[in-house]
Design a protein around this nucleic acid. Sequence first.
DNA 1: AGCACGCCGACT
DNA 2: GTCGGCGTGCTC
Length: 723
Amino acid sequence: MSERFATVALDVPLARLFDYRLPPGLAPMVGQRIVVPFGKQVLSGIVVAVHAQQPALEQVRDALLAPSDMPALPEDVLALCRFCTDYYAYPFGAVLAAAVPGVFRLPRPWAGSTGTQAYVATDAAALLAQVPARARKQRALAQALAQPQSVAAIRQVAGDALRWVQGWLAQGLVAPARLPAAAAPGAMAGEIPLLNPEQQAAVAAIDAAQGFAPLLLYGITGSGKTEVYLRTIATARQRGQQVLVLVPEINLTPQLEARFRARFPHERIVSLHSGLADGERVRHWLAAAQGEAGVVLGTRLAIFTPLPALGLIIIDEEHDASYRQAEGFRYSARDVAVYRARLRQVPVVLGSATPGLESWKNARDARYRLLQLRTRAVAGARPPRIELLPTQRQRMHDGLAEPALQALREVLAAGRQALVFVNRRGYAPVLACHDCGWISACPQCSARLVLHLADRRLRCHHCGHEERVPAACPDCGNQDLKPLGQGSQRVESALAQLFPQANVLRIDRDSTRRKGALGEMLQQAHTGEADLLVGTQMLAKGHDFPGLDLVVVLNADNGLFSVDFRAEERLFAQLLQVAGRAGRAGQAGRVLIQTQYPEHPFYAALVAGDYAAFADAQLAERRSLALPPYAAWAIVRAQAREQATALAFLREAAAQLAGFPIQVAEPVPAAMARKAGWERAHVVLSAPGRAPLQVALRHLAATLSENPPRGVRWLLDVDPHEF
DNA sequence: AGCACGCCGACT
DNA sequence: GTCGGCGTGCTC
């Protein structure tokens, strides 16, 4: 009998796998998790191979245990993670760790490992026979356990009832059980709206799609994309397939989940996002992995969930930045989803009113099938009327021009709601001295300190540094420091003064910090209790306010002259999204955009509401400049205590890449050259296609992880979306 | 990433 | 005299 070994991927930043001897009795499957000693630590990893080949090592340690709490990751999930490792040049073990719920990364079996959360008597009579006659509660529980009982139900019997069950479990009188599928709470399916012809065509195309088929569902706000999703989900369910639906943010899952449940009262629908408690996350994940959940609704992390009967993937708001993980393993869930659809040979629907230019190009090149929804689905609803409000010659009242105030007045007089969109929180973005030119600057970052007047503090929005508002200029002693520019707090207080009779409500990250605050505020906005809303981009997404007639956008110009070539694309999506908040059945909403550059071509496209024209123009520009999506990009980012150290490291890295058929730009300091006390720099790598770039990145990542630089933190950003 | 070992400053 | 700073070295 020969010895057997397991090759294990561990969550360490090393592009290496580790071999362990499997002691007798330990026979894990590929994809299963395994607990192993690692240096002085004990870690949980994933088995990637089992073999009899003696590893060429001085010492091979024994694996400790292979918990069966987590079913082995199926082949397609392993392949998906392998793809990510290659594509993002990120260690396999670290990718796998991201694909698995947190409790399965701990080096011990999960306590609730049955995954069932229920128990049943193995032999009801035997169980009852050994319970003392006087222990009435125990007898009652023992009797009840003839049928599977949920943990919650067991707890109801008595405080320590679970302890009795644990005891019986040890004696083999009780076993973990699966609860019969919960009877759906007698909800009636809501009224199913009729589809307009465009929706019908979209649904028909998705339903008929076979094998790998990417479809771009380009539909304006309110065109009824969700209804299209619901219909195609219904079809997939009739075929017995599972559907994976990705949404950008946790905030949006409860809404959508409620709508899905109302439509499919008899389906097992589970959500997966980082807001779930451990136990819930695991139960939902297992339900998906065991094929019990028909619909899985989740944020980006859900893309790695095992789904044995996967038949359709839907990505809502596919252009949204939340699909990109910005820390650690940096991936785009949208791109990973498309690859997964290819692996599984299933259709993938990418829905958006403002598709990302990558997807737009794919649709233009006929790599994706384009499905368009041009009309608002609700009868009589019309797209909002977007108007520019040039501010060069206007007298401003705390950032608001007179015509904007007039429009607000009219809306309030009519008893309707208005939203003022200011994409900056705080009172003013900077505090300045007019005598000597001092401005409030962060000592740790190359950024301004934002004035927060409510608690009289200056805060850095990048590193968390804060200080008291100085009484006088620290440089010249001038006591008259002036706040420059408008933040949401300033606009809120200005509006409260200008419209004393109105109920002004500010919704931003500061005002919603408290748990549940956002929900309460949205409720107030929804019922019309608040009639003047002031909000940052938090308010742009997904929320519908039936009473909202007017949106005023302040300082939109900020995104217009950025060094980042993607800034316009983001701004367009964002402005169209806020604009979509305005309007009600029968009457178009009005959107006023204050700008100092009304002649800028960007605004012509925006006013026309023509994203297609804008996107085509952007693509033409990108093509002529050989920018993404016409080139593959990656960035090597570095930070060090000294800028020179970071740049020297990057020059070294660039030299490593000399022989590869890729373009390596000059290393430069980052746009925010200093952040939280670190000097930052980067170098852009590009190539006409992905393949040569990937090869070069893998080489660089391997070299750097084997010989880590001193005093420099580095990372690779593949398909970067920001500078 | 952890977690050791390993040599130099202000404190129970 | 020790506790502890983080430099660097290793993990099957």
